[in-house]
Design a protein around this nucleic acid. Structure first.
Lengths: 207, 207
DNA sequence: AGCAATAAATGAACGGTGTTCACCGAACGG
DNA sequence: CCGTTCGGTGAACACCGTTCATTTATTGCT
């Protein structure tokens, strides 16, 4: 009686296929260009069929959102493995920036589109990709403080939040107000790392 | 023969009225909820009439965008008049944050919606509200450097860009990923100012 | 005053969107 | 073999931005 299992599997495969095609559309033409009708057309089903697998267009978007975030998290992993805390933060910043510039539409979807979409990422206080990747930053700053190389008056959590916000600001400004920044994003990230991590004064040398 | 003048004036007044109503709609329900038909309905004209005064929906959005930015610039003006450079930067940051939190939909429209909209703000290299307000920040950092209170290895322009990006990151994350930040935005801005302006080490006391 | 010209405003249409629901047909269980 | 269940769909509803021929109002001129 593996017949209902087969059906379930096929159902899941179709769902996956739809998401895959939707992902391609978003990456190629942006989230705004993702329409249920075009998507249905692309997967060769009637529009109504999509609603058998997803409640909404937003449901698809949310799913793409968490998947995009997981990709981002995966892209950060190598950098997170670096031993030295300062170097780790520097490489995390570079990896984060690289992801944002390489997948602008995905980045937009995750962080700039709609609060409803990103809500899923951070609702679980401990689990979920959002807090998990944030914890990477916090740990790095904790290590940095343990080495006596960071502002002692400020908690690692807050430093991590400011760090993330700084990175996000650089990327999102580049994505929407491209003509604004004079310096390339890489240089700005370097400055951000220099001030927040290495300390702002006359570019102190290590410990 | 002031008759054509009267017509011109009336034309301008209607245009202004349309923009005013559109502004209200955006502030109340967000840019996405601004539709030509609802707007036409609100000003009691046929939809087609709007196209006698604006090329596009985007044209209206662009206009709202530059006006929003001018409001932002106006909100920064008091802070920009402060003598002490460090204090000035601190107050500029506070004012910027306050504007973003007070007019979230306007802020979204200016900085987070569509590159096409914000393009107008920064295209003129020297004139225009964009470069003008950016110059405020640059000047503040120049003054800060003149007082010997800032990273000498980094240009004032770059510091200003990172500063702006940091502020924008804090606000835009708050607006879209509200559940993300643990600390209130004001605290994050304070930390940002502390590290970028006052210097990160043990919270140095003024000059 | 009456008429031609000009400007303002519109109704209706086109092609697009998300979403719903009654319906169909094929596969399944008894 | 028949009834039920379920994947799939066509057609519809209510919107959207935009265009254009047409109507309506206003102006300038004779």
């Amino acid at each position: 009686m593996g017949i209902t299992e087969r059906k379930e599997r096929q159902r899941g495969e179709l769902r996956e296929h739809i998401l895959q095609v939707a992902r391609d559309m978003v990456m190629k033409e942006g989230f705004g260009a993702l329409s249920m009708r075009k998507l249905a057309d692309a997967v060769e089903y009637a529009p109504a069929t999509l609603y058998l697998h997803f409640e909404n267009r937003d449901a698809i978007a949310r799913e793409l959102c968490v998947r995009g975030f997981q990709e981002l998290l995966a892209a950060l992993e190598p950098a997170a493995a670096v031993k030295d805390s300062a170097e780790r933060l520097s490489q995390l910043a570079e990896a984060y920036l690289a992801f944002g510039l390489k997948h602008p539409e995905t980045y937009r979807l995750i962080f700039m589109e709609d609060p409803k979409l990103s809500a899923d990422l951070f609702q679980d206080k401990k689990e979920g990709p959002g807090p998990k990747s944030f914890a990477l930053l916090v740990r790095a700053f904790e290590d940095l403080k343990a080495d006596g190389r960071a502002l002692e008056a400020t908690s690692a959590e807050r430093l991590a939040e400011v760090f993330w916000a700084g990175l996000h600001g650089i990327i999102s400004l580049k994505l929407t107000c491209s003509g604004f920044q004079g310096a390339p994003a890489e240089a700005l990230v370097k400055t951000l790392v220099a001030t927040l991590v290495h300390g702002p004064k006359p570019a102190r040398r290590s410990r």
